[in-house]
Each structure stands twice: as structure tokens, then as C-alpha cells.
Amino acid sequence: MQLIWNRSQALARALTLIGFTGLLVLALMTTSDVLMRWLFQAPLQGVNDVISVVMAVVISACIPANLAMKQNIRVEVFGAVAGPRLKAALEAFSSLLTFILIALIAWQFVSYVTSLKVNGDRTWVLGWQVWPWWSAATAMLWLAAFVQAMVLITDIASLFSGPDVDARANDDTSSPL
């Protein structure tokens, strides 16, 4: 169990790395577009086209790690007064609802991508097909659902065996506030 949990965390981190390398590449591309426009009056074609499709993959790639590390804003006033047992139950409940939502989104994205393919949606300037990019995003969301399932299982396990099994780090410096 611990092994699967560790593996899915590693997977989530790897996806983030892929996603943010993509973001870095987009930033480099936008910067060269600005420089080319400024220095040579010769901007690149279709930068925004690339951003809009790559961004979908970048963002969806961030979701598994966000779920694995439980980085979503939560209010834990109630848990502060409740006992450890109740707190663990709340933890499992919250993970269950998160799983339901992510799984529903992942499921809905399949038909969304199908409709993009059927309608032949394309980007504005370059005329790229958009469905392959959204398929990649959908795959990320399915992985996110898998990671969340692991989170849920760990939470349920610690509900029955005491809170110490839970080995997740909870470093909170990444809030947007």
C-alpha cells in the first residue's frame, strides 16, 4: 500500500515537472515574440494559439500533485476542537467528495474531447486541431482521479489504524494569498 502511495506521489511530481517545463517554454516563446516584435518588427505567428492549447495540459498536469499534497484551501476550525478520531473521519469524508468531483470531471472530459474531435475545432491562427491537446489534459485528469483515489484509501486506512500512517508532508507556503 505504502509503495503504491509513494509511486503515485512520484507520478504526481513528475507530471508537475512536465507541466511547469511546458510553462517555462511558453514563457520563453512569449518573450522571444516580444523581442522579435520590438527589435525587428517581426513577431512570431500564433503564440496565443500555442498558449491556449498548451496551457490546458500545463494546468491539468498540476492537479495530481495538488491533490496528493492536499493543497486546496480548507477551513479546519471544526477539526481543531474535535478529537483525532473525528478529525480522521472528516479527512476521509473530504477526500471522498474530492474524489467524486475529480472523477466526474475526468469522465465528462471524455465526451468533451469527443465533441471537439467530431466538430473539428481548431485554433484560430495556426489551425491546429485542438482535440489531441485536450486528450492529453483528459489523461492528466484521469491520473488526478487515480491519485485522489490513493489519497482516499490512505485516509480511510488511517481512520481505522490511527493517524500516524499518514505520511504526507503538509508544507503550506504555496498558498496564493
Binding site: 505567428q45 491556449s52 484560430w124 491562427v125
Partner: peptide
């Protein structure tokens, strides 16, 4: 015309 189309605006 040799102009550059910019999308996404």
C-alpha cells in the same frame, strides 16, 4: 498582404 495575424485577443 504580408501582415501577421494575432489570435486569442
Amino acid at each position: 498582404l504580408g501582415a501577421v495575424p494575432v489570435g486569442g485577443i
